[in-house]
Design a protein around this nucleic acid. Structure first.
Lengths: 164, 164
DNA sequence: CCGCCATTGATGACATGTCAACTACACGGT
DNA sequence: ACCGTGTAGTTGACATGTCATCAATGGCGG
């Protein structure tokens, strides 16, 4: 099978892209943790819950919403429940189901974290790039996504991984 | 403190960018594992080692090269040593140091994986974007990196995280 | 009502990653 | 030679993530 090795330029692009991702994640994660004591997964779960009118969601829908596996969410919820950020409540409609509810404590922490999160996101990412670059990045992300899985469409409203 | 919430556009860019990253990682990881049985970290370590003339490197330099913490690398090397992909050899110059060496087995597996890896990278990423977008992505990554940490400079030749 | 099968979450085993000690050695000044 | 400080790498505790599997329930055809 003919597959010539990557050119220097291709390698450079890929390597730099990945370095950028990991450094950005690390920076945001550290800052979030310092500001609020939350981890990124903690924050993503809470932020998704807070988008709901009554701050609760069925476990399955939550997982689907965030693009997580059910088991991953289950583990995460167990840890968050131990830390008092959320609780699980039985579901009347379907005895198999569970309502995931943000505790008052969880709500408070998440709201406080949101401010800092937004500022950090701008400081380290959004404000670093000019308008044209932001548009280009959006186009790039959409194109790669469409290629990988046309069903996880660029315009999909449900997919909310890493809630802002 | 004034920090207006993210605009819809900002949220969309951030969310789509993250969704793209996770989907891309998942795709490449699954393919790599199916092709060669290696995980992404396994592959990154081996690929970095194989760039060295004698296929070995001091542990500290390897970590720095890949942008990993020393402890992370140490854990990873322990697992890879158990699987027979690398070995650790005492260092004559400096009794504290360690040479990390790819085993013949590790070399063979990594070489085989490289072909598929390169093809997958092109198929799902590099070939999806046009020349202008690739250039834009490189510029974007460099800009974000410089902002986060000017010392992990855009032109740094050492940084080789996620070896292609 | 019963039996079959899909769905909902939870769990255990394991891989991966971070952080904070810790050990062993190197190196410089005295 | 000795002591203080820095460096190389390892380790343990724990958070996170994947996969395979399981128990309990729902729902449907007979």
């Amino acid at each position: 099978m003919r597959t010539p090795p990557l050119t220097e330029r291709e390698r450079d692009i890929w390597v730099t892209f990945n370095l950028m991702r990991s450094q950005l994640d690390l920076t945001l994660e550290r800052r979030l943790h310092a500001d609020s004591g939350l981890s990124t997964p903690d924050y993503d779960v809470l932020a998704t819950l807070l988008r709901e009118p009554d701050r609760m969601m069925r476990s399955g829908r939550l997982a689907e919403f965030m693009g997580w596996e059910k088991s991953r969410l289950s583990h995460q919820l167990k840890r968050m429940e131990q830390r008092g950020l959320i609780t699980r409540r039985e579901c009347g409609d379907d005895a198999r189901g569970v309502w995931v509810v943000a505790t008052p404590d969880g709500v408070r922490v998440a709201l406080a974290a949101t401010r800092d999160r937004t500022a950090a996101l701008r400081e380290h990412f959004l404000d670093v790039l000019d308008d044209e670059q932001l548009a280009a990045l959006r186009a790039i992300s959409g194109k790669v996504l469409d290629r990988i899985n046309p069903s996880v469409c660029t315009e999909e409203p449900a997919a909310v991984a890493r809630t802002a």
